[in-house]
Design a protein around this nucleic acid. Structure first.
Lengths: 176, 176
DNA sequence: CCGTTTCCACCTAGGTGCGAAGGT
DNA sequence: ACCTTCGCACCTAGGTGGAAACGG
C-alpha cells in the first residue's frame, strides 16, 4: 500500500500496553467501473468475501510511550486480490478489485499477559479518516496517481523521466 | 549463522503451546588465539559482556503440532560482535570474537495467553549438542570452513570457482 | 471490450567473502 | 604477528509500473 498510512497518537497511558491495527472495510455497497474516463457505479457488491482484512502493526504489543514517541507508520502493509487459501500470504489484506474501501485505525489496550481488554470497553478506540478512502484496481486509471507513486516510491525509481539527470554522478566524480 | 541450526522435535503435546529459543553460551572460560596455524588458549575470558544472547524462533508461540510437523530451522539467526547500544540490532545475538561458544535449544510450554510456565517445571526443556560448538572470529582461519560456506550459502555463490560452468545457460537456450 | 494475469527491465535492500588499511 | 574494520564486487530476494498475453 503506497502512499502508506501514518498516524500520530497522543493521550495514551505511557505505561499501559496497546495493540495497534489497521483494517480495511467496504466504503459502499457498489461495484465500480471506469467508463468514458470516469468512475461509475455498477450493480451491488458481492458482500464480504473471505480473506483477511486486518493488519497488526509489527511493533505490537507495545507501551503507550512507544506509540506516542514517533509517527506510527504502516509502510509494510500489503494489499492483494489473491484469495490464496491461507498460504504464506500471512498478514496480507485481501481486497476485491473495483470496490471502494475505507481504512480504519484501531488502538486496543492489552493486559500485561497480552490478552485484549473487552472490545466494547472504553479501552479500545477506532479512528476513521475519510480522506484515506480508495478504489482497489489491478491497473491504474489515474495518471496522477501513477506519477505520484513513481515520484515517491523508491522501488519505482526506474520509471522516473529524469532518472539520469537526477542521479548522474556529481561533477567532482566525472572525468574532464 | 551459517550453516544454521535445525532440529527435529517430537513427543510434544500437539495441542499445547510452546515457545522455541536458541541461546549461545560460553563453552569455556578462555580467550583463544590462532598462532602458528593452530588454536591455542590465551588467558581468561572477560566474563559475560552485555548484549543479547537469546533468539526466539519467529514461529513462536505455536502449537506442538506445528513444531513437530517439520524441521525447526534457525536460518535467520544472526551473530555480531557489535555491542551497538540496543539500537536496531533487535534479535541479533552478540558474541565476543575469539571465544568458544555452545548453542542451546530451549522448548518452553506457554499458557494460552502467552505467558510462560515456571521455568523449573517439567514443562521447559533444554537440549545441548556439543557438535555445534564454534569459535567466533572476525576472519576465517580454516579454509575448509570458508569453502563449506562458499559451496552451500546462496549469498556466497559469486565466490564459487566453477560458477560459470555450473550456471551457464543450457544448450537449448544458446544461439547455434 | 474490459479487466486480470504474467513476464520483464529496473530498482531497493541486504547477505557473501575478499583485500586493503589500520590498530594493538 | 595477529586481529578488526571498511569498502568492494557479486550475489539473493523482492518491490516497482509497463506491455503483452489471457479470459469472460
Amino acid at each position: 500500500m503506497f502512499p502508506f498510512l501514518s498516524f500520530n497518537l497522543s493521550v495514551l497511558d505511557p505505561t499501559a500496553h496497546y495493540n495497534v491495527y489497521v483494517d480495511v472495510v467496504l466504503a459502499d455497497q457498489h461495484h465500480w467501473r471506469y467508463q468514458g474516463g470516469k468512475w461509475v457505479q455498477c450493480g451491488k457488491a458481492e458482500g464480504n468475501m473471505p480473506g483477511n482484512r486486518v493488519y497488526t502493526h509489527p511493533d505490537s504489543p507495545n507501551t503507550g510511550a512507544h506509540w506516542m514517541r514517533q509517527e506510527v507508520s504502516f509502510g509494510k502493509l500489503k494489499l492483494t486480490n489473491n484469495k490464496g487459501g491461507t498460504n504464506n500470504m500471512a498478514q496480507m489484506i485481501v481486497l476485491q478489485s473495483l470496490h471502494q474501501y475505507q481504512p480504519r485505525l484501531h488502538v486496543v489496550e492489552v493486559k500485561e499477559d497480552g490478552s485484549e481488554e473487552p472490545f466494547l470497553s472504553s479501552k479500545a478506540q477506532t479512528f476513521i479518516f475519510p480522506e484515506t478512502q480508495f478504489i482497489a484496481v489491478t491497473a491504474y486509471q489515474n495518471a496522477d496517481i501513477t506519477q505520484l507513486k513513481i515520484d515517491h516510491n523508491p522501488f519505482a525509481k526506474g520509471f522516473r523521466d529524469n532518472y539520469d539527470t537526477l542521479y548522474a554522478p556529481p561533477d567532482s566524480d566525472r572525468l574532464t
